[in-house]
């Protein structure tokens, strides 16, 4: 039906599209985590990207370092995700929360998280060395549907990220904690006087966002290499997605993440991978000039 060249092109295009969708879904997960923290606590976490690495390194330690085979990634998720939750909760409770009581707390928290990012980068360097690391594919092989071909790895990453996003949305809309998170994000003083412990909600928010970005780290470390300083690039990417979608807009962040994921994959396929990041910044620059509030953000 199609010429050999067309079939080859369709093969490649479908592969690039699913790669873009899988990357986009992870970016969406990360951008949601970032929007959540900023929306609820009004604090900007500069160490956010380093928790992406933490997820990747924790998983690497179990799979490669300890040779954990039993249950594969299921075990990784059961062990690593609660660990990340604990790390995020403790970080807010013991490092960030004490600063919140002081004047000029926004800048103090910004400086603290910048310092934490440097600390974590160097800690990873000491513990894991500077060599690039990656995780084995969660599922090998390809799925052929007619003329199209999709890798199981990308499909799994896409499905797991989407599952994470849906779980996040469900938690936010249907649980007691989710209700408290929404209340604190909209009106902290109002939340206090109806009995919400906002300190606990701040800590829970940091913990959930750490799980989201760390989960993204576990998923993307199968496709990308991680090194001690790669958190910075991830942080920039999550920030670009958030700014492109509109600061504080969950829907905007989701749409932006998929646009960026697909755009990055196609630009990389056509011009080479290094052009992907250039396209990202051109897109951000264009957005800031034409629509500074982002795709779905509210203007002043």
């Amino acid at each position: 039906m199609f010429s050999e060249d067309t079939v080859l092109l369709l093969y490649e295009m479908s592969d690039v599209l699913i790669a873009g969708l899988s990357n986009g879904s992870v970016y969406a997960l990360m951008a949601l985590g970032m929007t959540l923290v900023y929306g609820v606590t009004k604090a900007f976490n500069f160490a956010y990207g380093d928790f992406f690495n933490m997820g990747g390194y924790f998983a690497w330690m179990l799979i490669i370092g300890l040779g954990l085979q039993f249950g594969g990634y299921v075990t990784i998720f059961i062990v690593v995700l609660p660990m990340l939750f604990g790390v995020g909760y403790a970080m807010e409770k013991f490092l960030i929360s004490p600063l919140r009581k002081r004047a000029d707390w926004e800048n103090r928290i910004m400086m603290l998280t910048l310092g934490l990012a440097l600390f974590l980068t160097n800690l990873y360097m000491v513990v894991f060395g500077v060599k690039l690391k990656s995780l084995p594919a969660i599922l090998d092989g390809i799925l052929e549907v007619g003329e199209f071909v999709f890798s199981y790895q990308d499909i799994m990453i896409f499905c797991l990220s989407l599952g994470g996003i849906l779980l996040f949305g469900w938690t936010l809309n249907n649980t007691r904690t989710g209700m408290a998170v929404r209340a604190v994000a909209q009106n902290p003083a109002g939340a206090k006087i109806v009995g919400i412990n906002i300190g606990r909600i701040f800590a829970a928010t940091f913990a959930i966002s750490t799980v989201m970005v760390g989960f993204g780290g576990i998923l993307l470390s199968q496709k990308l290499f991680i090194n001690p300083s790669s958190g910075g690039a991830i942080m920039v990417k999550a920030w670009v997605v958030t700014a492109f979608g509109g600061m504080g807009s969950i829907r905007g962040g989701l749409v932006a993440a998929f646009i960026i994921g697909i755009m990055e994959a196609f630009v990389g396929w056509i011009f080479g991978m290094s052009y992907g990041i250039i396209a990202l910044f051109i897109l951000l620059l264009g957005t800031l000039i034409i629509r500074p509030q982002g795709l779905m953000g509210k203007g002043e």
Partner: peptide, 29 residues
């Protein structure tokens, strides 16, 4: 002990019943 503020402190994107349910869920649980 419960209180109100001079300027109503509400949750703009939550419904009236959800806002009241927050007090119900987090007050005297």
């Amino acid at each position: 002990i419960s209180r109100t503020f001079q300027i109503p402190q509400t949750f703009p994107s939550l419904s009236v019943e959800d806002s009241i349910d927050i007090g119900n869920r987090f007050g005297n649980t």
